[in-house]
Amino acid sequence: MVKPRLNRRELSARLSLAANARVCDSLTAAYVDSDDSYRIGITGPPGAGKSTLIGRLASTRLLRSDGDLALVVIDPTSAVSGGAVLGDRIRMEAVAGDPRVFIRSLASRSNLDGLAENLSDVLLVFESDGFKEIIVETVGVGQVEYAVRNLVDTMVLVLMPGVGDQVQAMKGGILEKADIYAIHKADLPGTTQLIAALNSVLKQKAPVAGSWAPMIVPTSVDNDESVDQLNAAIEKHRMWTKSSRTMSMVRARRRAYHVGSLVARRVSEVLDELSPEALTLPPAALYEMVILRLRANLPK
């Protein structure tokens, strides 16, 4: 039986409900995992050109599909005011008006790993409304914020030339995690050096039989062909995931991240509620107090 689709306003309200859910609400919401959706995560340092590239990539993917496409784009919350300016969609103009495209901007809020609070639930709301494909843009990240790995099927790391020697320093973190490396702004000097540095880092990992060999794709917004090549790499990885991962493996990983992020959020809530006196306790006693509060019932 096919569930009737929500109208866009209803879907939007449902997304807000998921995004704003407290820990206890998220635990009882019981969104159902979708079996046949596909999620692409686009991540990389600030200014690498993620938003612009996503706009171009989205156009390319829409040409080859007849389904709807959701874009979930995340920007940082101000640690001073709690507010945020969400401006990623400015760079996605080419697809923003398309009736098949739904763009939702999220502020990171308390999340510190490059994603947004309740992102797990927001993605499931899209999927339960019949979206078969979602592109997630993380906030601009550093070397270790690769949590998006847990929630997407294909992870693209966008890098730009001029950071060649930083690649060496990154090799222990996010650089090990991507499926595809887009060397964006590849018309700028330094592209060859960056690709060479990246290749040498990736080659240090011994290939495991049956594992995915990461791909490096130079891209430039002035070059349609390069965006097509990125899309071809994504398609190749999509086919690979279909043959090498089971849905139960994917679900297990998503679930672990979802519950882990709720626990982390609850811990920071508990820490925020502690009195100044409690914070003078020795670490072991304070730890014990936090654990006790975590075990107490969730605020309803």
Partner: peptide, 14 residues
């Protein structure tokens, strides 16, 4: 920016 500083999440269209 003033609305952000007052705590709002502001979407700017360009």
């Amino acid at each position: 920016i003033a609305l952000r500083d007052a705590g709002a999440e502001v979407i700017y269209t360009g």
